[in-house]
Design a protein around this nucleic acid. Structure first.
Lengths: 207, 207
DNA sequence: GTCTATAGGCAGATAGAC
DNA sequence: GTCTATCTGCCTATAGAC
């Protein structure tokens, strides 16, 4: 109470910057990066646009900070899930839960939204988006590998390939579910995709 | 050569309007609806912004026209595929080919892009986006039903539910593939998802 | 249908006082 | 760190001549 909170290495640069990122994150996830403006954030925070430029000189800086923070938080969650004493299917269920919580807040995954706007974004942001997807694909591949070792999953495809499909299916299910405001549909799709990892490569397949 | 081209009921209102829609469509699919402006289209067409407003009074009008045309064209393609003398799996392969062609042009599905920006769009556009997805889900469900009748597909889920999952998986695979500029990854994902329709509901599954 | 001209507003960004 | 003031440029949209 007497002294200022000690500033940990991982803590944000300032309270205003953090609150600005919070507001911006929601705006991007709901409306897109090209829609919102400094004025929207300034109004929400009760400060002036010029003050925001002190924390984030350009909109590209703000966007990059947004992505770095989002990825770091996701990384923490992923590590947390991986450490849980549950099987691979349970871990994927938790992973899906992360997405479902976002959708329930009428948002898209930050990187799903920014992947759509990808071509219009500054290069430093593009790099961070790929980095987010890389992180997720790597994590998913390792869980899929774990599920195979324990004979829970039986996919014919490589874990790398399956992880890409899974990531795309979840991002896409969110994307298509939102116009209908229907979280249940997303959950159903997610369950179907997870289930398809369990099925044995039965019939010969195509050809 | 002597007379003006006869104006069919389904033909565009004017050549300028059509060319404007062509340019706008590409811009939206690559950069998003909130990124492009009348100036971009006017420049590409070699006319003035004010002339564009003659054809599309507001940007919302342009957006709606874009969606109506896109859906109508998709509808034609879907009917064409359905009439082909090939099995359900072959029809889905053709359907995937539609998406792949779009991605190859460094674009996203128009409605995939607009679904991301959904919350920021005027209501008439939102309605058209849902309509596009409805059209696709209905078509996919009917093909899945056909594949089941012929014992090609063996999904446990309802065709309605599976069609939503399939649509989401394809839209999402496009979304995630684009930052990597990797059409092959999309094709691989699409093949995996189609394959999962064929697998038998083997093991007991969850619970 | 296309043009010039312009309105009226908002965008991202900077300078410099406090 | 926050403010006022301001710049420059672009945005959507309209009026009215040709």
């Amino acid at each position: 109470m007497l002294a200022a909170m000690p500033r940990l290495a991982s803590s944000p640069a300032s309270d205003t910057a953090t609150r600005a990122l919070d507001v911006a994150e929601t705006l991007v996830q709901q409306m897109g990066f090209n829609w919102f403006s400094y004025a929207d954030i300034a109004e929400a925070l009760g400060i002036r646009k010029a003050s925001l430029h002190h924390h984030f000189p350009s909109k590209a800086d703000l966007g990059r900070a947004l992505l770095v923070r989002y990825r770091d938080r996701f990384d923490v969650e992923l590590k947390r899930i991986h450490a849980l004493p549950i099987d691979a299917h349970g871990k994927l269920l938790r992973y899906v839960g992360l997405y479902e919580a976002v959708l329930r807040g009428d948002r898209l995954c930050l990187c799903g939204m920014l992947a759509a706007e990808y071509a219009s974004l500054p290069e430093p942001m593009q790099e961070e988006i790929r980095s987010f997807f890389d992180l997720n694909r790597k994590w998913l591949a390792s869980v899929i590998r774990e599920g195979r070792r324990s004979l829970l999953f039986h996919t014919r495809d490589t874990p790398e390939s399956a992880s890409f499909t899974l990531l795309g299916a979840l991002e896409g299910a969110m994307l298509v579910a939102r116009p209908y405001g229907d979280v249940a549909r997303f959950a159903e799709s997610a369950a179907q995709v997870l289930e398809s990892l369990k099925t044995r490569p039965g019939s010969k397949g195509s050809r």
